[in-house]
Design a protein around this nucleic acid. Structure first.
Lengths: 151, 151
DNA sequence: TTATATCTTATAAAAACACTCGGGATTTGT
DNA sequence: ACAAATCCCGAGTGTTTTTATAAGATATAA
């Protein structure tokens, strides 16, 4: 059903949480899990992948935790999704990574549709960065304060 | 992984096959299954849903089969996908059909992303009709003949 | 009446999903 | 030195979804 699994959703939430706590030293998985309502052990698995991909850096030991691997404007949502859910591929024959070439590919009219779907998804996910999200959150916050003021 | 299941893929293939054989009387599932390389029994289940949704009409008995439920330019790929895979919903909280409203929805920055993904998928699928596909197929066919000529 | 089809329901293997658990390694503060 | 906090790693598990398969009932053309 063109659904995202919890991996992708939790992963984006966790990364955004990290972005929101930049400059406060390492953020522990425990605190992320609590704030975002995610199982800590499960989150561990996801973050493990993100670390191997360089999207986060880890600090071990007490008071340790995680930091963003690079500046928030250099981390696209598409980067996160691809690490956690694999290449974007509405069907195997149009996967971003080694697609399964079928013999009729060049004449296949349905294939052309899935390619468009893939590209439209990738375009959205690659147009949004953690920085974008921080800006959006700030905007929503200020609009909310404005609303409170009028009450 | 934002994947389509075989239901959606087989369904679109079958509908396109029906469109290509318009005007030849009812097309049997057996012939569609053979041409498209799909299990006939499995296809039966899918077409059952399409019939209930009015996208195809059935003719029972010997020499029976299926016909498009309406003109090919009135059948969007999105219609087919929604019948076979359910409402477009990268996450439950942004489903086209009764989304699961969460208490933080209005402040949720991640939710806004999934909404954009949903809309971009829907836009692509609703911009293509069976008629469009027939035109594309014709174009590919004539380009292919042109190519053959030069050899 | 026979062959050809659609229709309906039931069953089931296999894969994916969403965790859960147990233990090990590393660092900080006492 | 030790305890607590934290990251790290791999295996195991119950549930759901997917992808069919099978069996039989119903309808119609020839």
């Amino acid at each position: 059903m063109l659904k995202l699994s919890t991996k992708g959703r939790y992963g984006v939430k966790a990364m955004f949480d990290l972005a929101q706590h930049m400059g406060e030293g390492p953020t522990s998985l425990k605190s992320i899990a609590e704030r975002q309502g995610i199982s800590e052990h499960y989150l561990e698995q996801l973050v493990s992948g993100l670390r191997k991909a360089g999207l986060v850096k880890s600090v071990r030991g007490a008071q340790g935790g995680y930091l963003l691997g690079r500046e928030p404007d250099k981390i696209k949502i598409g980067d996160i999704i691809r690490v956690l859910e694999g290449p974007i591929a509405p069907t195997d024959c149009v996967s971003e990574e080694d697609p399964e070439i079928c013999s009729k590919a060049e004449f296949c009219v349905t294939r052309a549709i899935w390619e468009k779907v893939r590209d439209s998804i990738a375009d959205v996910l690659d147009s949004i960065t953690l920085e974008t999200m921080l800006e959006d959150a700030k905007k929503i916050e200020s609009e909310r304060n404005l609303y409170m003021y009028y009450i």
